[in-house]
């Protein structure tokens, strides 16, 4: 078995992410109640339900077009801060991958990196602003480092998942400087960031499915 990621696997990734979001919907909204406006779970659930439906509509397609479709659907259905951010993340991955039936682990790494760059370009977040960046950036770093260390796809994704979880947990003591939580000032401290929580699910879904 090679470490190539097929479009079937990418499709499974998106669906698994949608599943995890649906499961964690209330938890995400609860986190967003504490330092936001109580809609993060509903936002992503609405978007990922639409994204899955859009893949059903799309039928067989290459890796790039598939992820582009997901990105466009998220942009068009989520709204709020997470719509443009997750939308851009998927759109940039789609652009990098091109219309191919499968991609290598390295190509997947490049796509994740491009997705991360897109999030930064859109949202201007930096490390420790207490956003999804703080879970996603370490995950992308860990994945790339894993491949460099000679790990296979599954193990590198395992490291990425651990890094994302750690990054997510690390948002709790941070003082928010971006997004809605920043309005709370000091009161944002002590709460886990909803976007960091959901993006850790995206990485977890990858580790579950891309093998």
């Amino acid at each position: 078995m090679t470490d190539d990621v097929t479009t079937v696997a990418l499709d499974a990734w998106v669906r698994r992410f949608a599943e995890l979001i649906a499961q964690e919907r209330d938890h995400l909204t609860e986190l967003d109640s504490a330092i936001g406006d109580a809609d993060h779970g509903a936002n992503l659930d609405r978007g990922m339900t639409a994204a899955v439906a859009s893949l059903d509509d799309l039928g067989p397609a290459g890796a790039g077009p598939m992820l582009t479709k997901v990105g466009m659907t998220l942009v068009s259905t989520v709204g709020g801060a997470s719509g443009p951010l997750y939308g851009t993340l998927f759109l940039r991955m789609g652009t990098v991958l091109g219309d191919v039936p499968s991609v290598s682990a390295e190509q997947l790494g490049a796509a994740l990196r491009a997705g991360l760059d897109g999030v930064v370009a859109r949202g201007k977040a930096q490390a420790e602003d207490k956003t999804m960046y703080d879970a996603f950036a370490p995950a992308v770093d860990a994945f790339e480092a894993g491949l460099k260390d000679g790990l296979g796809l599954a193990d590198a994704l395992g490291r990425a998942r651990a890094a994302a979880d750690e990054g997510r947990d690390a948002t709790t003591p941070m003082l928010a400087r971006k997004g809605r939580a920043s309005y709370l000032g000091e009161r944002s401290v002590g709460h886990q960031d909803p976007g960091a929580t959901s993006v850790a699910l995206l990485v977890a879904a990858a580790a579950d499915t891309l093998r």
């Binding site: 809609d39 509903a42 936002n43 068009s76 259905t77 709204g79």
Partner: peptide, 11 residues
């Protein structure tokens, strides 16, 4: 009009 408390989408 976006969803409740959620910015509308670019479309």
């Amino acid at each position: 009009a976006g969803e409740v408390f959620t910015s509308p989408v670019p479309d």
